[in-house]
Design a protein around this nucleic acid. Structure first.
Lengths: 163, 163
DNA sequence: TATTGTTATACTCTATAACTATA
DNA sequence: TATAGTTATAGAGTATAACAATA
């Protein structure tokens, strides 16, 4: 059996035999897998009326367990400050979050989940994790641990590129 | 040492201990790795004046070794037909591709690389593959083979979701 | 009737930079 | 002077659906 990347590698081998395309065996497959996972994950989020970014914002607040400033949020979610303001405005309009002035710095504010926001993200993350479990059934527990370990090793070496 | 996902898992464990978030150890890390790789890969493409999608179109033509129809192209690159027309128009304006009427079907056309287009994609893909090699140096050959194998197994089970 | 490729439309999302009010 | 957050602007990119020509 060939997956999509196998076919791609054969084509490159035929037309550019000088290239060692072996990294595509990993990186091409990561792209492919990411695309498939994204489609499935976004379907789940859509069921709760959320986009990926909106879920990330609500989930950041939920797992932090405390209010966060817009600056903290746009750093963790990797958006511009302007984009974060727009997202927060929309989530506020929907009654999922609210802003409070900061005690110590009057330029700043704290963003919190409303009750409705917490209830929504709690349901969404439960469904999300269930979907993630479902997505990994093709690999047994050992394989899953191996895969997590390899990705973790790669990230420890490369994650500084993001910061 | 903890990577970003380790910290995330600890936070979820603290605030939602009822959830088994172990799949995030894989899927969260795939997202994180994809993000880092995308930044690096796009930098390389940008050096040749190409976006990800534009590279994908030119590379599809190059490795096919023969002209392709717009329909074939938007299927492989996963765009809408309208988006593909817009992309092809831009690449034509830049002298990288050209359309020819199809011999057998007068509704259709064949898209080919110009000499300049082939020269550009040949340089871009060489640099791209070199960059990919560089990105994987954190893993030794055995680990790379393991990782490719696990992703391949996952894709063989899940790739049908895309088609 | 169905399909190919193009066009026209409208939408979503974003980064950038200017702006304010504080620090 | 620098920072926090907002606003205003403009741009990139897309999907959708209507369309014309052909199958």
């Amino acid at each position: 059996m060939q997956d999509h990347v196998d076919k791609l590698l054969i084509q490159w081998q035929e037309h550019r035999p000088d290239l060692d395309c072996s990294p595509m065996g990993i990186i091409g497959r990561m792209y492919r897998a990411h695309r498939i996972m994204t489609d499935s994950i976004n379907d789940v989020f859509k069921g709760y009326g959320l986009s990926q970014v909106e879920f990330d914002i609500l989930a950041s607040l939920r797992r932090a367990g405390e209010p966060l400033t817009p600056t903290q949020l746009y750093h963790t979610v990797m958006l511009s400050s302007g984009a974060m303001t727009a997202r927060l405005d929309k989530l506020t309009d929907r009654g999922l979050i609210y802003r409070q002035p900061s005690d110590d710095d009057r330029r700043s504010c704290k963003v919190s989940l409303t009750e409705a926001g917490q209830a929504l993200v709690d349901k969404a993350v439960t469904a999300h994790v269930a979907n993630e479990h479902q997505m990994l059934t093709a690999l047994d527990k050992d394989e899953q641990a191996q895969l997590a370990g390899l990705l973790r090793k790669w990230l420890l070496a490369n994650e500084s590129a993001l910061k």
